[in-house]
């Protein structure tokens, strides 16, 4: 049985990674899951300097999902290089580093700092709904998507994955813009912008007012967008959005994703990633599937 997949020339032992921001740099979950069992670890977003993130409350539960407005808190690229890359390199897994910035220059700086580092791919977050500048501002206009993709592609030594926002009218248009800019792969979806109001306090639940909706509630939207993006471009896609089980993951794969990422489910079940890996193998065994690649995009 072959579970390995190849994206942009990088081969992953299986198609399962983590969704950025839900897994730190793997340290906390390393106590629960053998990280070497994962196809890749995708890290929390890394910026050029440390970012303190948003005020609290940063978290609100919603029906079948949750809102977060962490605000991309992270220790900055220097600490990341000195502490987190060596930690992740102890494991037999690929490392995908999520990159964030407020301006094109900031994204470029991080990509350049990572150029000589031992990481496998870069995932460019142009879709975070929780920071005022940067983030999603780059991801909602196809011209901006094209420009930042081509700027980063000039500087990156690793293949780049553009992480797309679902908060757009036409995901296919954004996917094509990233492809035209030279992206090596796409990942989607980031969170959907949402809001929750506490009617007893007559106030917003989140200090940031809005937050990103994730969890099982968003899965059908995510599957649909992965399908549309897969039909719009030739690039390989990492699909995510509400994946909590192998069954969920297989929907994304059949919709056209070459890899899948487990996100919010990690918060509810620290071993969710491993269960998805094992569940995909069990499904392949059950249906006599020799190669996972035969399932990618099999539902037309």
């Amino acid at each position: 049985m072959n579970t390995s997949v190849t994206l942009a020339g990088i081969t992953f032992k299986n198609p399962v990674t983590t969704a950025s921001g839900t897994f730190g740099s793997g340290m906390e979950y390393g106590e629960y899951v053998d990280l070497s069992r994962l196809g890749a670890v995708t890290t929390k977003g890394v910026s050029n300097v440390p970012w303190p993130g948003n005020p609290t409350p940063r978290i609100a539960e919603t029906y079948g999902g949750m809102l977060n407005a962490i605000g991309l808190q992270n220790p900055g690229v220097d600490v990341f290089i000195n502490r987190d890359i060596p930690f992740l390199r102890k494991y037999d897994t690929k490392v995908i580093v999520n990159v964030v910035g407020k301006t094109t220059e900031e994204y470029c700086e991080v990509v350049e700092r990572l150029a000589c580092q031992d990481v496998d791919m870069l995932e460019i977050n142009i879709s975070c709904p929780n920071v005022k500048e940067g983030g999603i501002a780059f991801g909602q206009d196809p011209r901006c998507v094209f420009e930042i993709t081509s700027e980063l592609k000039k500087r990156a030594k690793q293949p780049i994955i553009m992480k797309l926002s679902p908060n757009v009218a036409d995901i296919g248009e954004m996917a094509r813009a990233a492809e035209a800019g030279g992206a090596d792969a796409l990942s989607l979806i980031n969170t959907l912008t949402g809001m929750k109001i506490d009617i007893h306090r007559r106030a917003f639940l989140l200090a940031n007012k809005t937050g990103g909706l994730s969890g099982p509630a968003v899965k059908p939207v995510a599957v649909r967008m992965v399908y549309q993006a897969a039909n719009a471009v030739k690039l390989p896609i990492i699909g995510m959005g509400g994946i909590a089980s192998a069954e969920d993951a297989l929907e994304f794969i059949m919709a056209g994703a070459s890899m899948v990422a487990v996100g919010t489910a990690n918060f509810i079940n620290p071993t969710a990633t491993l269960e998805v890996v094992e569940g995909i193998e069990a499904y392949m065994g059950q249906y006599g599937i020799e190669d996972i690649n035969d399932l990618i995009g099999c539902v037309k």
């Binding site: 921001g21 839900t22 897994f23 730190g24 906390e28 979950y29 106590e31 929390k44 993130g53 609290t56 409350p57 940063r58 978290i59 609100a60 949750m66 977060n68 962490i70 808190q73 919010t264 990690n266 918060f267 620290p270």
Partner: peptide, 12 residues
């Protein structure tokens, strides 16, 4: 307000 409870999500 917390999500993961184990130090990963940076919510709390």
């Amino acid at each position: 307000r917390m999500a993961c409870g184990i130090g990963a999500c940076l919510g709390c």
